[in-house]
């Protein structure tokens, strides 16, 4: 019997969408394997009512523990205890940052196998088999686990399905590990930079490190104005971390997931963490001076060239076309 435990990431009264998708996926898999899916919640004063809502996505039981939010080690402590006490051999995580930190630590604690960036999970003879794309998504590899398996999903890999009923909430207390006491949150969820709305845009002009500096975004703003209508400017994590563009406009693993009609990427190499946030866009156009940039492998139109030469002229031409 394959029971599965899922970590549900909580922030300010709501659960992470990728966590909810992981619960739905685990519920489906556990059903096929003749087991149940359960969830773990760690936080400060999360109500039983809120925890019970995870049942709607497929959790049988919700194991709820008091502890700091936003840190991996306290979650590892709770999940290791629950998996030990309940005899659960598999854990599934939705895409994101904290999930892989918890998952990797849990694998080490339990001497389990761990696979990340998983896009699909199968059940084979009552056991879970994880599939992950490798080598820049050019091949898919299957992972099988000798005993215990930790499966960490890629962002948006697992589809969220609602429709279940409230789950039974079980309070748990785990002995904190010594290292858990060595880290504490000073502040969480700081929004850096202006509040830009990229989720509702029909056209997104996105910039990456290839812009060279923060002023490169002026070029992209001009291009966005030329397109007019519902057009916004977005960015990769690297340039947001560098302070060139606000966090609210970031695409990818720890940012937004978008699917506009047109996604125009300027100076973006196309790393997996970025790709997962924009690959559902209807039309992808990429401008990059490196002909080997991975983004050309999933763009509909690729331009190999200097964006500083191309973007200003493109803005002029589009403005003229619309005039």
């Amino acid at each position: 019997m394959a029971d599965i435990l899922v970590y549900a990431l909580h922030y300010e009264g709501a659960f992470n969408k990728n966590s909810l998708g992981a619960i739905s996926e685990a519920s489906k898999l556990a059903g096929e394997a003749g087991g149940s899916a359960h969830a773990v919640v760690v936080g400060e004063g999360i109500s039983d009512e809120l925890a019970a809502t995870l049942g709607e996505y497929g959790a049988g039981k919700v194991f709820k523990a008091e502890g700091p939010e936003g840190l991996a080690q306290p979650v590892v402590d709770v999940m290791a205890k629950v998996m030990g006490d309940e005899g659960i051999d598999y854990a599934v995580f939705g895409g994101g940052l904290l999930g892989f930190e918890v998952g990797a630590g849990l694998a080490a604690r339990l001497q389990a196998g761990v696979t990340m960036e998983v896009t699909n999970v199968l059940v084979e003879d009552g056991k879970l088999v994880a599939e992950r794309p490798i080598l820049g998504d050019s091949s898919i590899s299957q992972s099988r686990y000798k005993t215990k398996g930790i499966i960490i999903g890629r962002l948006n890999a697992f589809e969220l399905k609602a429709g279940g009923s409230a789950a039974e909430v079980v309070s748990v207390t785990a002995e904190p590990s010594a290292q858990a006491a060595q880290a504490s949150i000073v502040s969480r969820g700081e929004q850096r930079g202006a509040d830009v709305d990229i989720e509702g845009a029909g056209t997104l002009i996105a910039g990456g490190r290839g812009l060279g500096n923060a002023e490169g975004f002026d070029l992209l703003q001009t291009l966005a104005e030329a397109f007019g209508g519902s057009t916004a400017v977005a960015a990769t994590r690297a340039v947001v971390d560098a302070g060139w563009y606000p966090y609210a406009g970031q695409i990818g693993q720890t940012g937004k997931t978008v699917a506009p009609k047109l996604y125009l990427a300027a100076g973006i190499s196309g790393a997996i963490q970025h790709k997962v946030g924009m690959q559902s866009s209807e039309n992808i156009v990429a401008i990059n001076k490196d002909a080997n940039a991975p983004i050309f492998e999933f763009s509909d139109l690729g331009i190999v060239g200097d964006l500083n030469k191309i973007v200003p002229k493109l803005a002029e031409a589009i403005a003229a076309k619309r005039a």
Binding site: V114, S141, F296, E297, S299, I303
Partner: peptide, 21 residues
């Protein structure tokens, strides 16, 4: 603990058009 194997090709998106500037 992980045994990897059975490599297969993912569904490929048709290659896009490339313009060398």
């Amino acid at each position: 603990q992980v045994q990897c194997g059975e490599f297969k090709a993912p569904p490929q998106k048709a290659a896009g058009q490339i313009i060398e500037d």
